[in-house]
Design a protein around this nucleic acid. Structure first.
Lengths: 203, 203
DNA sequence: GTCTATAACCTGATAGAC
DNA sequence: GTCTATCAGGTTATAGAC
């Protein structure tokens, strides 16, 4: 009765559009993307896009929500976890992020870029203020009262997330091909916790 | 008799348009910016924009070139300088960048965002490949043969530049107001070289 | 559900008066 | 140099046939 699924071939039209939207929005950004681009990429007609999703805006917000969920899901629960040590948190966050971003390297620049042109529309989904009450911040303050937690956050995210932000630049010109980049990020999974530990001794 | 006080009166129309273009392009990005927005921001007529600059594209490229010059001017000469030590290079780059970016905090995200949607058009102005032949990379390889220079580059830029990339997010929600952010960056000017030195001992 | 055709609107750029 | 008016082309979204 139920149709047999062939993952590659038999994808619903709705899903085709979503997949195409991810690709095009990621490559060109919201403003520069035309709904025609998405329709063409999906191999369907323009009218179907508005049939399944109400508008370009709605479709975009769906994709954006996906990306932000991935981005936050890898870090927020760890920050709030009260049953693991600070060192374990650092290892877990680093590992989660590098693992996830190696699969979706475009997420950070996508979110940062789109948030820039949309101040306040989706930024309120970022629980930035709750971060200050997180278990992570408390443990950090106890261990290093002299170092402001945001300084530490800049270090942790700067070392783990920023490489993905500058990935396009490193790749261009062949300084660091995609494959080599990925390998270096795997190295960093082990290195960053050690580096951070060493940094902690300075201040 | 004092000089004219209103900036607007003193500034040529051409300069007014440039200033407005910087503001609007920075806030909304190239694709989402309408030439009408720039004209309104400049307090002039839409037709004048095309009179002074040939097109939206030409105007944008002028602004982009400015930003990239600022961004590269603070780092490239230091990388190539053969008469200072590696430690001095790290201190100089960190200091130059934080000084310059505290004045123009939007530059990194601007460049990264626009480069993303424009692959190949302006990226070729980035002398990324020349980096591999720089004095900096050579000194680094001699000192730490096991650590790939790009790994080091990710660390240096991650610690100095990334905070400015996530500045909008930190500011939103009041986690770190602009003034406090600026102060923390000044602290980092002294901290980052020490941190990097400590990290170097790990690998 | 899917398509073609088109409405309704927006945007970059220019013509031409002053 | 500066303005108003407008053109030509492009864009989102929908109507309506199948």
């Amino acid at each position: 009765m139920a149709k047999k699924k062939k993952v590659d071939v038999d994808v619903s039209t709705e899903e085709k559009i979503k997949i195409a939207a991810r690709t095009v929005f990621t490559r060109k950004g919201y403003a520069a993307t035309r709904t025609r681009d998405i329709a063409e990429e999906a191999g369907i007609n323009l009218a179907l896009l508005n049939y399944y999703f109400r508008s370009k805006e709605k479709l975009f917000q769906m994709i954006m929500l996906e990306k932000m969920t991935s981005f936050l899901g890898a870090i927020v629960p760890v920050f709030d976890n009260t049953s693991i040590t600070l060192e374990q948190k650092i290892e877990t966050i680093t590992s989660n992020y590098i693992e996830m971003l190696n699969e979706n390297p475009d997420i950070p620049l996508f979110i940062l870029s789109e948030l820039r042109t949309n101040p306040g529309s989706l930024v309120n989904r970022l629980p930035v203020d709750r971060l200050a009450q997180s278990s992570f911040f408390k443990q950090l303050h106890k261990k290093k009262p002299d170092l402001h937690p945001t300084q530490f956050l800049m270090n942790l995210l700067g070392l783990t997330v920023f490489p993905f932000v500058m990935k396009p630049i490193l790749e261009y010109g062949g300084l660091l091909p995609a494959k080599a980049f990925q390998a270096q990020m795997l190295q960093r999974k082990a290195l960053i916790p050690k580096w951070i530990k060493a940094m902690m001794k300075v201040v």
